[in-house]
């Protein structure tokens, strides 16, 4: 009877195991396998050697640099926003309004920015009105970081909002009672206690930002080259799947490293998931 029950239970595990093997393990194994193939399909280590040439090192550096910029600016905007949200009366409604744009297709939003930032677009019309005059906005570093931050902000706000919500307000009152200034309260009480939310948010932004590709062409006009762009080009244009896979392997390693470095404690993960 008991053996039968556990047998059934194992059977119910099959779909999940299958899922993990087919869609998690197999792709990673395939990527690693392809990374050892050259253009003609022969076995080689050349791709790994090539990755450490200046071209790809520079690209890796610029990917990290832009991902960092995007994460920092998202955090700068998202933290105060999340904090204010928890203080409003209809916070769920406000939260919904902030999340709402993420229901719109990414490509559509990006295309909209081409129109807004164009030479004769809305942003430049405003600049002209205020007497600053037309400047180039589209295809600059600024527009790239701006649009990326805009796209990633909801992913930063949500975990931080949850963390602040979890915070017991009496701790804040206690700190104030004991004579801490508002800034000190924030620095020593609020921020450390919501750090897990910040880490979760940074992960949710930094990791996808590292492999952005479409926005680099549409908004940055290929003036920003990230590892994601290179992967796209190797797979679709060059058909050099080996090199594309090699870059992907390094991205996976980088992402795993980031997960470990910013890893949140078990308890915090559970708390974040509660909501």
């Amino acid at each position: 009877m008991r053996a039968d029950a556990s047998g059934t239970r194992n059977l119910y595990l099959v779909p999940y195991l299958l899922w993990i093997v087919l869609f998690v393990v197999a792709p990673i194994v395939l990527i690693v396998y392809y990374s050892f193939l050259d253009v003609e399909g022969g076995f080689t280590f050349a791709n790994y050697v090539k990755f450490f040439t200046p071209v790809y090192m520079k690209m890796t550096f610029s990917s990290f640099w832009y991902a960092l910029l995007i994460t920092v600016f998202s955090l700068l905007v998202a933290y105060p926003a999340a904090y204010l949200l928890t203080r409003t009366r209809h916070k769920q409604l406000w939260l919904l309004l902030i999340i709402l744009p993420s229901w719109i297709n990414l490509l559509l939003k990006t295309y909209a920015f081409i129109g807004l930032f164009g030479t004769y677009g809305f942003a430049n019309a405003l600049l002209e009105l205020t007497g600053i005059g037309r400047t180039q906005i589209l295809f600059t570093d600024f527009s790239f970081v701006f649009v990326s931050v805009y796209i990633f902000i909801p992913f930063m706000i949500l975990p931080i909002f949850n963390a602040i919500e979890e915070l017991n307000p009496s701790l804040v009152y206690a700190a104030r009672d004991l004579g801490a200034s508002p800034w000190l309260t924030f620095r020593r009480v609020i921020f450390p206690l919501t750090l897990d939310g910040v880490k979760a948010g940074c992960q949710a932004v930094f990791i996808p930002a590292l492999s952005l590709f479409m926005i680099t062409r549409l908004i940055a006009g290929n003036r920003v080259i990230t590892l994601g762009t290179a992967i796209e080009q190797h797979f679709l244009v060059t058909q050099d799947w080996g090199m594309g896979a090699t870059i992907a392997v390094f991205l996976i390693i980088a992402m795993a490293a980031i997960m470990v470095l910013t890893g949140t404690k078990r308890k915090a993960v559970r708390d974040a998931n509660k909501r």
Partner: peptide, 17 residues
């Protein structure tokens, strides 16, 4: 070079970007 773009080039040039 202002930008290196894909199919959008048609729209951008027609808009005198």
């Amino acid at each position: 070079v202002k930008a290196i773009v894909g199919d959008e080039i048609k729209m951008l040039l027609a808009n005198e970007e």
